[in-house]
């Protein structure tokens, strides 16, 4: 029984009224309650149980990464509108006073800042690729990471956050290895989400590339079936929300970071990500705002 009609405003209000999210005043930046976090933690644990025997190397990064890394990947060519480049103050005390005078006068002050060496992490997998540099073992490599990502896309849609967490798995190997792995995980993810009684389906997808060139990149990506998403209705039945994505990058990251398969050829990479806040929201929408009242079968998967 859906918690609300499929309606963005009604669902946002429901989350807020039940104390699950705490609005910050900025669109797409929310606080979360202990109950919300309990669902996120339980779902992540369920994913990790599913992947227990895969032997993924676990690695943890902060929500910032080197700007040079982002620049090397071509992210700014594809997604300049989503990027977050950290700026800070490098001036004298007098200049700091002038900056604050601008703030208090309600004037712009960004021109008094300079660029730092870091950016906000655009995807959890980005800092992982450099760790794959060199020649891979025959079976390739697999890593996993959970982290915060930033996408500059402020929106009133409750499911579209500017800062959110992804549990990612990242694979490097031969083209056959990474495609087989990605296709296998698509089925595993659908199985897990269906066990949680979410009305999911998968579809070919594209990234939100910038500009007219971006429309061409998006068509390319769809024609080559490089990206799949798992979709579930949360705030709309007609336009369901993507809660997982499965991406085959061909040799894009491998070329940038010098990742070679065991036979010496340039490797391929793929990644998959579970959008943890969106999955929690999908569960609240599907089963109600109180997890204690969720179907026993769903609770058994999350809290075995």
């Amino acid at each position: 029984m859906p918690a609300t009609a499929y309606d963005a405003a009604a669902f946002a209000e429901g989350l807020r009224r039940h104390g699950l999210v705490v609005p910050s005043g900025v669109r797409g930046v929310i606080g979360r309650s202990a109950v919300f976090e309990g669902v996120v933690t339980a779902f992540d644990a369920a994913v990790r149980r599913l992947a227990r025997d895969d032997g993924a190397e676990e690695v943890h990064f902060p929500p910032t990464l080197p700007r040079a890394l982002v620049e090397r990947t071509g992210y700014m060519e594809s997604f300049p509108q989503l990027a977050g480049a950290v700026h800070s103050f490098f001036g004298s005390e007098l200049e700091a006073r002038a900056l604050c005078a601008c703030i208090h006068a309600g004037e712009p002050w960004s021109d008094r800042l300079g660029m730092t060496d870091v950016m906000l992490t655009p995807a959890v997998c980005y800092p992982v690729y450099p760790t794959f540099a060199g020649t891979l073992p025959h079976e390739g490599r697999l890593a996993t990471s959970l982290g915060w990502v930033f996408r500059h896309e402020p929106s009133d849609e409750p499911t579209r956050l500017q800062s959110f967490r992804m549990r990612e798995y990242i694979r490097a190997g031969t083209p056959d290895q990474v495609v087989a792995w990605r296709n296998d995980w698509l089925e595993r993810a659908l199985g897990l989400l269906r066990a949680l009684e979410l009305p999911v389906r998968s579809d070919i997808a594209n990234d939100p590339f910038f500009g007219k060139g971006g429309r061409m990149l998006a068509v390319n990506q769809r024609e080559q079936q490089l990206k799949f998403e798992v979709l579930v209705p949360v705030i709309s039945e007609e336009a369901p929300t993507a809660i997982c994505s499965f991406n085959w990058h061909q040799d894009k990251f491998a070329t940038v970071f010098g990742i070679h398969a065991a036979d010496g050829a340039i490797a391929n990479t793929a990644c998959l990500g579970f959008g943890l806040e969106r999955i929690a929201m999908a569960l609240f929408q599907a089963h109600g705002f109180d997890p204690a009242q969720w179907p026993a079968a769903v609770r058994d998967v999350l809290w075995p």
Binding site: G74, E77, S78, K212, G213, G214, R215, M216, L217, V219, N220, Q221, E223, Q224, K252
Partner: peptide, 27 residues
């Protein structure tokens, strides 16, 4: 590469003073 093909498309538009409509923005 895909990104190079975008640059080719934009350069063609400039050189020939044309505009590729969306239905031609394919591989």
């Amino acid at each position: 590469t895909s990104h190079a093909s975008v640059n080719v498309m934009l350069a063609l538009e400039g050189a020939f003073d044309i505009e590729f409509p969306d239905h031609l923005l394919k591989r």
